[in-house]
Design a binder for these strands. Structure first.
Lengths: 335, 335
DNA sequence: TTGTATGCGTTATCAT
DNA sequence: ATGATAACGCATACAA
């Protein structure tokens, strides 16, 4: 495998009859180059198929033109048919492409993986780091921020660290969901909450609590972890504990989907006997039986905004500590 | 933001009272270093928090220790609740983590995006390139291979280019699906085929054709593009063209899911009137009404195998041109 | 076994 | 406006 020698600046310079410095200027779009020379260089670049060596460039510029997106791998969850993570990746990717930067994806599942992420990011191998929905109070975002490395999180980081973040308005979404059921005459509204070590799980439960409290109704709570399996178990428990419930807000569409089936198996009709509302608006939500009423969150936009914030931060701008994206109630047949 | 000066080899060397070369040896695990010196260096590294500068390293080693995973962004498809792409990402990521290499993810949707991918990969900014299910006959894999850049594709690349690939055994899977319906007494078995510019779509249609031909039955075909929407349209067309059909093989679970609903809306019972079998075994398949019988493909394993092959190639080993992974029929209630 | 010296391909700082 | 030239931080051939 004779690795064809890549042309360097030197080669281009020789061919164009100029110095390396001039070629560098042309390649980097400097304006102080005479037009005829610029043309000659451009031609030489094309003829030789010259592509800058990024390692050499970043050695001197101290930049890498790449950013890391860190996601907890959380067992099988990340890549079940939950569309949250893929959606974030997509948004991040779009925005990075526009900025001509590379996306380094790091799935941090195991402790070893987490350590690897820590080492890589603190080692300044990327110009910035994006964190997607962390579990618990991960110290890494704070550590990076303290080192002066640009960081943005999706969702308010737990543990009260001063790291900028972008999140959706969970509470407003849940409030709309509960209110919708109240308007439909429901008075025994339960919730299947998300994991309480993730901010999305916590916030959505808070939203539910506030909403039912405001209506003077009791809290009927079971906790899941956003997966279908956990949703089914939680629904069964709710039916046992509160057989008279007439509404359920599930903190994820996957859990809502499982609840739908569990209710059917228990002989409850949806929405006649029990109203069900989910959260996310994944594609499957439109195809459940019955189609799921749910709170849509702008996931791709979340990824885009995180990225834009990070790029601004990396460019030395000052950014808002918090960006909140709106949610929207999508009414289908389940409630 | 006073970017704290990172310690260099030089600094570690000074602290440990040795030369840069020796520090380099220790850091890279050379065996020719005396134990006391190794210890002193290791201590200095820890005390200073030294992390090698990868740009400097790859400038001299001519390696980047990162590989690119290229995926066509295909509009909304990649990140709908299709689990194929996320699954591949996960497998690739796992295997790369074990090899301590970085994953650079490139979503190539637009022509501009494709050009960016081309420039980046041909520019040798990565040690190897993985392609995930391409559309049409993309020339890029062949180009890279010719440049001596390690390449592995998921799925046989169209256009007869000599690029190594890993794929699942589509034909065997489809054969099992059709045979299962035949065993159930079905005699008018239709298919909702996948896009015919993707090898997965083509192969699955081939498998269907061979299977019905072998049984002496007619071909009843409608073509979709793996999405639910296209599946619904194809199912409606099949019902119009062949109202007497009693079995449907859909080339993706998403299309099968839509077919289930379309059949119900048309008053057909599944599986009593019409048997339905899908392909993929996404998580949703177990939650459809009725639960979907489908062909499972080992997606995460596909990502892992691709990566292992690529790493071997990059290490200079000779690898098999083709690796075929088995599929498995998962029997649920729809057929 | 350890140290010295060189070069990897750029960009940036100077002169010119 | 252009050209020398010096870093950037590391790995390695060679010398000791």
């Amino acid at each position: 495998m004779t690795t064809a020698q890549r042309p360097t600046l030197e080669a281009v310079a020789a061919r164009a009859g100029v110095s390396r410095a001039t070629v560098s200027r042309v390649v980097n779009g400097s304006t102080t180059v005479a037009e005829p020379i610029r043309e000659a260089v451009t031609r030489a670049v094309a003829e030789l198929g010259y592509v800058p060596n990024l390692a050499a460039r970043s050695l001197v510029t101290q930049r890498t033109d790449s950013i890391a997106l860190v996601m907890p791998e959380a067992a099988t969850r990340v890549f079940s048919d939950d569309q949250v993570f893929p959606g974030i990746i997509r948004g991040v990717s779009q925005e990075l492409e526009a900025a001509d930067k590379q996306l380094v994806l790091m799935l941090a599942g195991s402790p070893a993986g987490h350590h690897r992420v820590e080492r890589y990011t603190t080692g300044r191998h990327v110009d910035g780091v994006l964190f997607a929905s962390l579990h618990g109070a991960d110290p890494l975002p704070g550590t990076l921020a303290r080192l002066g490395i640009p960081v943005v999180c999706s969702g308010r980081p737990l543990g009260d660290v001063p790291v900028p973040y972008v999140d959706v308005d969970h509470v407003a979404g849940v409030t709309a969901a509960v209110r919708h059921m109240l308007d439909g005459g429901r008075r025994r509204i339960a919730t299947i909450a998300g994991p309480q070590d993730m901010v999305a799980g916590i916030e959505r439960l808070n939203g539910y609590r506030e909403a039912v409290a405001a209506a003077g109704l009791p809290e009927l709570i079971a906790v899941g972890d956003f997966t279908r399996e956990s949703g089914a178990a939680a629904m069964r428990q709710l039916l046992t504990d509160h057989p008279d419930l007439d509404g359920v807000f599930a903190a994820s569409d996957l859990m809502a989907h499982a609840a739908l089936r569990t209710l059917r198996e228990a002989g409850r009709r949806v929405p006649e006997d029990v109203a069900v509302v989910g959260f996310d608006d994944i594609e499957t939500a439109a195809y459940t039986e019955p189609p799921l009423t749910t709170v849509r969150q702008p996931i791709v936009e979340l990824g885009r905004r995180m990225t834009r914030q990070l790029l601004r931060l990396a460019a030395g701008e000052t950014i808002e500590q918090t960006v909140m994206l709106p949610t929207e109630l999508i009414r289908r047949a389940s409630a």
